[in-house]
Amino acid sequence: MTIDKELLDILACPKCKGDIRLNDQGDGLICDACRLLYPIKDEIPVMLIDEAVKI
């Protein structure tokens, strides 16, 4: 999955508002500070704290 660079630049962790990055598999966005993975489902990033996976 490709994610627009501009989109990556403006997206932040909904919890700490810090930077996020695309994971190696390209199917989730990682906040290293909160150690949370936000999944990308049907090409839509799910930026919900409750649905984030602990890493």
């Binding site: 627009d4 989109l7 403006i10 997206l11 932040a12 962790c13 909904p14 919890k15 508002k17 996020i20 936000y38 489902k41 839509i44 990033p45 799910v46 930026m47 919900l48 704290i49």
Partner: peptide
């Protein structure tokens, strides 16, 4: 572009 978010905890930085 679409994203799933809770509007009370948006996943964006300030003033974008």
């Amino acid at each position: 572009h679409l994203q799933q978010m809770d509007a009370t905890h948006m996943a964006f930085g300030d003033s974008l």
